[in-house]
Amino acid sequence: MTENNTPTLATVNPAELTSAVDSVQQTMSQFLDTADVSVVYGKPVKNGETQIIPSAEVLTIMGFGAGYGSGSNIDDGEQNDGSGGGGGGGGRVLSRPVAVVIASPESVTVEPVIDVTKIALAALTAAGFMMGMLFRMTRGPRISD
């Protein structure tokens, strides 16, 4: 005979539960820290009297979860208790330079960082899209049986 009891919080090991919650909160806090301005602007680099401040766009995406459960059953008159927990997650951080701030004693200027590869790929996509449409339209109507 086997009886399954619903796990309750009372049977959960508090130390393990606290550890899991702390871990989730710490990860969430680290994730929210990427919204800070210090993530976007780098440390100023000195070059003589000129200072250069790099700036980048940062994209962070993540998801995670943790769970804990416990239960007990009575098998052949013997009660067995068990508990376990686990968690997992994943994410990605993408960073791309956007501009460089050049500060000299005379003036402050912003020089953009141009990614030629990305622009070329966008141009190829646009050209491919138009060529595809042109090819489709010049081919004429399909003759069905």
């Binding site: 989730v24 976007v40 602007y41 401040i53 980048a56 766009e57 940062v58 994209l59 962070t60 998801g63």
Partner: peptide, 25 residues
């Protein structure tokens, strides 16, 4: 003096832990 500004778009999944942050100068 220079004060840098950034704009952050934060989306947190309503029922899950995690989300999306887009931070740009």
């Amino acid at each position: 003096k220079i004060i840098p500004f950034s704009q952050a778009l934060t989306i947190q999944w309503p029922f899950f832990n995690g989300g999306f942050i887009w931070n740009r100068p």
